[in-house]
Design a protein around this nucleic acid. Structure first.
Length: 926
RNA sequence: GCCUAGGUGGUGGAACUGGUAGACACGCAGGACUUAAAAUCCUGUUCCCGUUAAGGGAGUGCGGGUUCGAUUCCCGCCCUAGGUACCA
């Protein structure tokens, strides 16, 4: 019988499902290993061949770990709340839950076709009430917590309340809003309940406050910073404006430092770690106050407090709160027109236009904190309201932007270092000694920083300060298809609904659009009131809420009492290997780390970091094919199409052609005639009797006719071929275009594997004879190679090694059971269906290959046979002198140390090092 | 601009700590089997010179350097991809 992937794969997928072969239990002596995929959003388009890349890699790793004796947790689920289902609902009126269900079933079918070893009994769906009940529960924990800086962790809000009751706000060191009040215990206890609640809100990790948000009118919702790309929405590309709104937020900035420190402890790709570092954006510097007359001052943040004596003016962002108060009558009209001008500029224009220098003098002066000299106060849009204090001290000699500004407006430029060169541009050097700098003249950089900070602190006009670029995360969305926030309002104060009242179910609405008055869709829910009288929160949670803790739920998916039991989380701890795309660097991966830390602080588990090791799989791009339509003299399309190589001789226009009717860039001209009705009478100008198509790498999309559905590949070649081929395509992390040019080779390989177990007539036939040394050598090479490759995630090189191995065994006509059985165990993780089939043909029990023992590598098989290369065993080098005979001893002039045998051969001379390549000595180091 | 990754045949890519560059696969060319096709197998395939050959030369983005030896390490430059951006 020939290799028939269709019957084999169908049979085993059914068997695995019926026998729950990959169901995972906690009760075992085996060490645990947790392999996680980033769960997909089930979109209407289904999976294309790019999606499974990371899933195949994680499945190979999971299966490999099982063979290595680990108890592997490898679950899958769906991130099923999200915008596309809602958009579809708006257009069609169909409930998003229905579309989502349909899409999930489609995804499941496609995933099953690939033969993954998921434990489906642990599936989670974020839009399922049994799941989002716990997302709401976690929100409650966040609302009930505050960050205690003294303990450097989050605590129950009760500890803060007790403290207020007994000692007032004195001595509390918390991550909080800026505008907290100062009060004694007596005052606190005398506060009305509502004032107490308002004050506590400034400390909670989940809090409500007025903030500037990215408002997208077209989508009718606010967006997080990472959902806005270049001033337009990531989804849909609609314009986004800044707007002040009352919003739920998450105090992620409280964890900024811990999020940063944690990055040193995880095994993640460098670019990803770097992205998160930049996103958090820690700057160490100082805050300095420039006093105003008669009272008050302008606070600025600087990373170069040592340049304080080079300050020649202060600049405020146009949105700065003091702008109005500081504008003098003489300057009022100039300032007003400048503000009007900048307000008109969109965020996008303001960022793009970094070359034009613009600004306006307020007419007012601040005092230099140390010298007391007058310092002009300017307004300019190169200062951002959202970063630092929205004001900067300008040091033109040390900062290029300040330099350009000073030159343009003819403001003084004061050199402050003896090694500065400021003829052409600012010079931020820290190397020299200070000049023109009062009491720090002659000091070095380090000395100056501490001296200036000490002086500012003594004057109470500044202090050392750490500033972060990261902002608190906006948590509310004015959408329907998300988790309801478990909050109701009484007298304008938010209160939590009780834990035992969860889940707070998403109410039914007649339409999924915002109301005419601009309220979120949930306002349409009739009679939806807490205890029939209190308004619920009408916004829902953002897309990242459900995905910020899902790895816990897989550990204990059915638990009705808690989001994850202590026993389960003590056993599985954290994710050992996480595979997914780098596009989640500053979103999901950051929020997940944040929630993980909060839940740790509150005592629900022990792990500071949720994902120990992380691998980014590269995106698979589409590879579009083009035909070239010949144009007539008037530039109109004819029915003639010219092959790629000859198109220069004609006037042509390229047209996308469906990649599914192109093979190895050769067009199937018959199928092309049926591709579009107007191509029915197409004529072709061929080269070498073929029509060659042009190619281009683009994003995979329906409109470009370059989408390849994994189901089609599986139908033709089988899931094992798809799995091997996706790995064979190149390094996992690398982005690469999909093409099927090499898939035949992989398919051929599997047929060769099949034939090793079958005789010329196609009958199953293996021998129980003792294998030869050459056969053992071929086997042990692959045992070692695959082990090494999988451990370093180099799956593509394994596939090549498999091909070499099978070619060798075919050459040797090897049909020895002892060799072949071990071979398929090694191959199992890559091609589970064919190996399972061969496993039972060898007389083993069905379903057991996944839990077989990975063969043990024995280096002797590689060494004894022919000394192909020097092999170090227990630190000693084995050499075969007969092979070293043709070395060129003339090159050796002086020999120092070396192997005794080699010494004897080389007339008693000794060498430092012999360089062998494939059995020959190619060089001697003396 | 800054940060990160990368640049190797006609193509995807290999070379894991410096050691015969181009494994493996695709494609292409030629051949075997077959009435024929499919399937399978064999041979060749970095480029240039050389009638086939023997043989020689060049070669891992460009220019230098370290080394007996560099795709690999160092310096400078060019290009590509991803991230980020008046972040004080």
């Amino acid at each position: 019988m020939d290799y028939n992937h269709r019957s084999i794969e169908q049979k085993w997928q059914t068997f695995w499902a019926q026998n729950q072969t990959f169901k995972t239990a906690e009760s075992t002596d085996k060490p645990k290993y947790y392999v996680l995929d980033m769960f997909p959003y089930p979109s209407g388009a289904g999976l294309h061949v790019g999606h499974p890349l990371g899933y195949i890699a994680s499945d190979i790793f999971s299966r490999y770990k099982r063979l290595k004796g680990f108890n592997v947790l490898h679950p899958m689920g769906y991130d099923s709340f999200g915008l596309p289902a809602e958009q579809y609902a708006i257009q069609t009126g169909q409930h998003p839950a229905i579309t989502t269900e349909v899409n999930i079933n489609r995804y499941r079918e496609q995933l099953d076709n690939i033969g993954f070893s998921y434990d489906w009994s642990r599936e989670v769906r974020t839009s399922n009430p049994d799941y989002y009940r716990w997302t709401q529960w976690i929100f409650i924990q966040l609302f009930n917590s505050w960050y205690n800086k003294d303990a450097d962790k989050s605590e129950s809000i009760d500890t803060l309340i007790n403290r207020f009751k007994s000692e007032g706000s004195q001595g509390v060191s918390a991550e909080s809003d800026e505008d907290i009040s100062i009060f004694t215990a007596e005052e606190w206890n005398a506060f009305p309940e509502e004032d107490q609640q308002r004050e506590l809100l400034k400390y909670r990790l989940a809090y409500l406050r007025e903030s500037t948000v990215n408002w997208c009118a077209a989508l009718g919702t606010v967006l997080a910073n990472d959902e806005v790309i270049n001033g337009v929405s990531e989804r849909g590309g609609y314009p986004v404006e800044q707007k002040k709104m009352m919003q739920w937020s998450m105090r992620i900035t409280a964890y900024a430092d811990r999020l940063l420190r944690g990055l040193d402890t995880v095994d993640w790709p460098d670019p990803l770690v770097e992205m998160q570092r930049n996103w958090i954006g820690k700057s160490v510097g100082a805050s300095v106050i420039f006093p105003l007359t008669p009272k008050g001052g302008i606070e600025v943040f600087t990373t170069r407090v040592d340049t304080l004596f080079g300050v020649s003016f202060v600049v405020l962002a146009p949105e700065h709160e003091l702008v109005d108060a500081l504008t003098t009558e003489a300057q009022r009209s100039a300032v007003a027109s400048y503000l009007a001008k900048t307000a008109k500029k969109s965020e996008l224009e303001r960022m793009a236009d970094t070359k034009t220098v613009s600004g306006v003098f307020t007419g007012s002066y601040a005092r230099h904190p140390i010298t007391g000299d007058d310092v002009q106060i300017w307004i300019a849009d190169y200062v951002l309201a959202g970063y630092g204090t929205g004001a900067v001290m300008a040091v033109p000699s040390g900062d290029q932007r300040d330099y350009v500004f000073a030159k343009h407006f003819n403001l003084p430029i004061i050199p402050i270092s003896d090694s500065q060169n400021i003829e052409e541009q600012a010079d931020p050097t820290k190397d020299g000694r200070y000049i023109n700098s009062d009491f720090i003249n002659g000091m070095t950089y380090q000395e100056a920083v501490s001296a200036v900070i000490a002086k500012l602190e003594a004057l109470k006009l500044g202090k050392a300060k750490v500033n972060f670029r990261m902002r608190d995360a906006i948590f509310g969305r004015q959408r329907y298809w998300g988790e309801p926030v478990p909050v109701y309002f009484k007298n304008g104060i938010p209160y939590l609904i009780k834990e035992e009242e969860l889940p707070l179910l998403l109410p039914e609405v007649d339409k999924y659009l915002p109301t005419e008055t601009g309220e979120p869709p949930l306002a349409r829910a009739e009679g939806w009131k807490y205890q029939d009288q209190y308004e619920y929160e009408l916004s829902t949670m953002p897309g990242w809420a459900g995905s910020s803790w899902y790895w816990f739920r897989y550990m204990d998916p059915q638990n009705q009492d808690i989001f994850v039991s202590k026993e389960a989380v003590d056993y599985w701890k954290a994710v050992d290997l996480y595979i997914g795309g780098s596009e989640h660097a500053t979103g999901h991966l950051l929020y997940s780390r944040f929630w993980n830390k909060v839940l740790k602080d509150l005592g629900f588990h022990q792990e500071e970091e949720p994902f120990k090791k992380l691998i980014n799989q590269g995106m698979i791009q589409g590879r579009s094919n083009f035909v070239y339509r010949v144009l007539d003299d008037e530039g109109k399309g004819t029915n003639q199409f010219v092959s790629l190589g000859l198109r220069d001789q004609y006037n042509t226009v390229p047209l996308h052609v469906d990649v599914n009717i192109v093979f190895n860039d050769v067009l199937d001209t018959e199928k092309f005639k049926t591709f579009r009705s107007d191509f029915a009478d197409a004529e072709f100008i061929l080269e070498n009797d073929k029509y060659i198509c042009g190619t281009e790498v683009e994003k995979m999309s329906k409109s470009k006719f370059n989408v390849v559905n994994p189901d089609d590949i599986i139908e033709t070649y089988g899931a094992d071929t798809l799995r091997l081929y996706e790995m064979f395509l190149g390094p996992l992390e690398q982005a690469k275009p999909w093409n099927t040019n090499g898939i035949e080779g992989v398919y051929k390989f599997l047929r060769k594997v099949w034939r090793l177990f079958h005789d010329a007539e196609g009958n199953f036939s293996v021998s129980d004879e003792e294998p030869t040394k050459a056969e053992y050598k071929a086997l042990h090479k692959i045992i070692k190679k695959v082990e090494d490759d999988i451990e370093r995630f180099s799956f593509n090189t394994s596939v090549s090694a498999f091909m070499i191995c099978v070619n060798e065994l075919t050459e040797l006509k090897c049909n020895k059971r002892r060799i072949l059985q071990d071979l398929i165990i090694v191959l199992e993780s890559y091609a589970p269906h064919i190996t399972e089939e061969l496993w039972i043909l060898l007389g083993n029990q069905a379903g057991t290959i996944s839990y077989a023992v990975y063969p043990k590598f024995n280096p002797d098989y590689l060494v004894e046979s022919e000394f192909a290369y020097p092999v170090s065993i227990n630190g000693k080098m084995k050499l075969n002198l007969s092979l070293a005979l043709d070395l060129d001893a003339k090159a050796v002039e002086e020999i120092v140390i070396g192997n005794a045998d080699v010494q004897r051969y080389l007339d008693g001379k000794a060498v430092k090092k012999l360089i062998f390549v494939k059995g020959k000595i190619i060089n001697i180091v003396v």
